[in-house]
Amino acid sequence: MINVLASCFILLISLMCFSGADAEIITASGCSVSMSGYLTGFAREYEKRTGVRVLVRGSGSIAGMEDLKSRRVDFAASCRKKFPADPADIEFIQVAWDAMVFIVHTSNPLENISIDQAMDILSGRTTNWKQLNGKDLPVKIFASEPGQGLSGIEHNVKEMLFNGREAPRLRNKIPLASSGIVEQIIEKTPEGFAVSGFSSARYRSVKMLKLNNVRPSRDNISSNKYPFKRPLFLLVPIDPKPEVRKFVAFALSTDGQKLIGSLGAVSLMDEK
């Protein structure tokens, strides 16, 4: 009898699990840095642990916000803070840290860059790598600027480099959909230059330049040696699906933060 009952329980649990697994899918899109930096791995681990399937994809902070607004996804990721114009029914919940990094092709001899040099490039004053003692190649800037509002990187550049002013439009700046795409383009472009996030760039075969001779690393960021630290958010509606709520709660939990740290990103717990 006990066996029969045990068998039935197991079957029921299995059914419940199966049916639960079948029903428990939550989707997310948004910030490429977050996606590549931690969220994809985090979601995979969460699914393993909870059985809730979390489908995430990088599309840029703006696309994520839009997907969420139109309920195409259950939650989104962003690497910028909430603006007043952003919908009030979307909450910005910080779950990790990141830092803005300057990336070039691996063949670029440049190793370090000063803030001024970076400003010269982004202001159009430096247009050839030889001005920075590099090869005689024109500088091609790739930027995550989808053009329907400020992307996370755009916002950070504006705030951190141009003191709140808009970065100038340059002829040698090529706007792209998201930082993920930018990083992949830099991988293939010897004369490329871009601003991206530390969390995702560390997975790409690109060269992250030292800034004022400070290497962008988890420690330097968490210790604030490396400037341009920035938060990474999860965006959820104010009435999220329970699974989302659970997911966020997990991310903010100690286990969750440990998981983020284990994925190489700077967790909230890493902040010193």
Partner: peptide
């Protein structure tokens, strides 16, 4: 992308 940001194009100049 879902918000009509061009992710890729061929030829790429017309991205």
């Amino acid at each position: 992308s879902t918000v009509w940001n061009a992710i890729d194009a061929y030829p790429f100049e017309r991205l």
